[in-house]
Design a protein around this nucleic acid. Sequence first.
DNA 1: CATTTAAACTGAGTCATACTCATTATACGA
DNA 2: TCGTATAATGAGTATGACTCAGTTTAAATG
Lengths: 231, 231
Amino acid sequence: MPASQPDVPNTSRQRLEAKESSILDAAEQVFTRAGFDGAKIATIAQTAAVAEGTVYLYYRNKQDLLAGVVGRFWARLTLGAEEAITPEASAVTQLDQLARYHLRSILEQFEVVSLTYRARPQQERDLDQVRDYVRIFDRIMLRGIDRKELPDGVPVSQLRDVFFGTLEFSARTLKLRNQPYDQSIVTNLLALMGQSVAVDKSVSVAPEPSNSDLMRTLQSIRDQLKSAKTD
Amino acid sequence: MPASQPDVPNTSRQRLEAKESSILDAAEQVFTRAGFDGAKIATIAQTAAVAEGTVYLYYRNKQDLLAGVVGRFWARLTLGAEEAITPEASAVTQLDQLARYHLRSILEQFEVVSLTYRARPQQERDLDQVRDYVRIFDRIMLRGIDRKELPDGVPVSQLRDVFFGTLEFSARTLKLRNQPYDQSIVTNLLALMGQSVAVDKSVSVAPEPSNSDLMRTLQSIRDQLKSAKTD
DNA sequence: CATTTAAACTGAGTCATACTCATTATACGA
DNA sequence: TCGTATAATGAGTATGACTCAGTTTAAATG
């Protein structure tokens, strides 16, 4: 029965977790510096100040260690995203917040994101964390539908791919050209998505939103931005 | 001066190219079956019916061999895409054709596409082929603008990321769920892009805001963002 | 506090495999 | 037919992931 939870690692359980986390830290550092293939377990062990064999007490193999690093990264990102989103804001605003946060984060930590691709085919444990993260988008959309801010028939799953696919490819393009964060990417993406996401109940039959719709969406975005600026 | 081009490989040049191509064939087969890490050079050499050392006469190392496989794949894809597109069709039609072709191809050859991610950070030679492929999209867009089918101010580069990012993420989602090609993805993507891409002069019944109006609004948004960014 | 027992840790050794290079085979020109 | 250059070979080397018998450390017990 755990009577207290001291801040200093005292119990053996805590000491183990501290060591595991320090191995993860070392692995993240070495992986992002040298890439997966370039990283040596020996270096990671040395950085974490443990013997090589100790690494294998915590992780079955190099792939598993990578999965740990990548999983932790996406879990961190999930926490950050939840902080970046205003709980009471409208769905479109929340999407905007998520898009900014996402683009910023994957630009800043591009190397770790790249490592994700090295993990995917193998283990699936880290995919869980990615799934959790992606679920934030789904939550925003479903809430928006619930609150009648978004039409009922939006293909959430497909828009999810538009959202994250566009942002990730845009990030790659920026990296390739050595360009910094570009707000217009988020703006344009949301303008695009705004079309199929706008409530627009008057023209429920018409498949093609008009320029007026576009205009309306753009103006709403501007208004939101204006109010967002005052925070 | 080459007098004739016999079908049977006769000249030493031709024999070399045939051998290189057979090594690439073997590598593609083994890589897609076993993945990059799982593939052994010994197996590839055996499949190509050459000695292990011979592989290294044609490719500096395993990464370089992968770059060869991936580069050839994207070159093939470029040829196929050019065939799939009707030269005289409208820009929107051509985008539709490219989108279908692209989604189909990357679904069918998902393993090779995945290998692309293993090659990217390393060599850049294969990136050239990818660049060539992507250029097809740019050509369609620029031709559309030239022919006044698309408005002047379309951010081609950003839409490119929307286009390929969405399609690739959609393909991953389909693969993950073991679902086949889904035409609605292409339809929805083009409907989305159609908004910012359509000239849409036929339905100018109501006093539609002009693209200049849209542009002005967009610019005001951008300016606001710019000033917000400098804080 | 001494002793037992279990858990955590170590690093020298094993093994798989990418890559090398001295040797051999082949093709081609004279 | 011979000489030379080019291509091919595969046994050998180097590297680095992973193992495991032995050692240290910590907890449990009396």
